[in-house]
Design a protein around this nucleic acid. Structure first.
Lengths: 201, 201
DNA sequence: CCTACCGATCGGTAGG
DNA sequence: CCTACCGATCGGTAGG
């Protein structure tokens, strides 16, 4: 018999990961240190690292959790909308709401991780790349449905639409936060709507 | 009389900064360490730090130099073009060429710095913010000229155009590098041209 | 999960 | 510009 039930172990791990996501959101996945996180959780470094194995495994778990937060915030709410332009619009709306929210205290987690690992090979690079590819794939599929439905011009390339939306949200989110200017996200929203042929509103 | 001429001192400092820009381009300004840079330059840590005062002063000098590289690569070549859409087009072209080049081995320096400091106050945050504001101001002025010349729709907001171009280059450059896909920059170029009303070519 | 500890590295200073 | 050194912190292990 284990001294703690599996549920309790997985619970404590989930709590740990949550705190780590918040810390890494500000400091980056590279800036995350075992000592600081352990101190914040009032536990020993060895106790903390024991939950993951080593730092890299912890970073990968943190990234995975952050991606789940993003999906839950942006993809799930939009899933109910009609396929086509309505769903694309719902994704843009949820995305902007997400960027305005404090889901990640330090700004979009995947964007931060993308910049940290875009020029550094390794498992974390591969994980971030895979997550971005999955999300681009979702956007592309939605854009394709919108083209098929006649909501987007027939010569509009779904791959291009997906890449454009991703670039605008990623770059616009960073700039809005850096400038401390909420209007930045209004502009990001307007640009994303333009990219899918909608009026600014 | 100084033991080394002013020119020699400033020369050695410039060499130091150049090496530091390349290192920080990959590791980030936060990942830049005195020990590693000193080792790469085959000098002592104290000798290196003596050229700047402390690490933060070195980081600020590195950022300033990187901004100058960007301006020289993107703004100077476009300056000769006619004001209006021709100059905007020239800026986009130079920008994409710059992103494709190895001017910064680790990707756009200002984008990396924006992400590192968007959620962290301090002098470096302020320096990055000021640099981005200056560049957005340049883009906005050019967009305004293009609107005045009738090259952009009269209801197109120059501030929005500037923010959109910046977001696309910043986010698109990161994604293209992360995915290791040169087509990413083709898509970025197409999106930037779309933003200023031009055909993809 | 803990304490105690490892070698390496951090930014920086003293003194020359 | 150097050597020598400071206290702090890094990721991680040994042993319980």
């Amino acid at each position: 018999m284990p001294r703690r039930s599996d549920a309790a172990v997985s619970d404590s791990r989930a709590t740990t990961v949550q705190a780590a996501v918040d810390l890494a959101s500000v400091e980056g996945l590279e800036g995350l240190t075992i000592g600081r996180l352990a101190g914040q959780l009032r536990m020993s470094k060895s106790g903390l690292i024991g939950r993951f194995g080593d730092k890299e495994a912890m970073q990968r778990a943190v990234l995975e959790s952050a991606v789940e937060r993003f999906t839950a915030a942006v993809w799930l709410p939009a899933r109910g909308a009609e396929p086509g332009i309505a769903r694309l619009e719902a994704i843009v709306d949820a995305w902007i709401v997400h960027l305005r929210s404090d889901v990640f205290p330090g700004g979009c987690f995947v964007t931060t991780a993308s910049v940290e690992y875009d020029a550094r090979p390794g498992p974390l690079h591969d994980d971030v790349e895979a997550a971005v590819r999955r999300w681009l794939g979702v956007l592309e599929a939605e854009a394709r449905l919108a083209v098929a439905a006649g909501d987007l011009a027939p010569d509009r390339d779904p791959v291009e639409v997906a890449f454009e939306l991703h670039s605008l949200a990623s770059g616009g989110g960073v700039a809005a936060r850096l400038l401390g200017d909420p209007a930045g996200l209004d502009r990001t929203r307007a640009a994303m709507r333009r990219a899918i042929g909608l009026e600014p509103t």
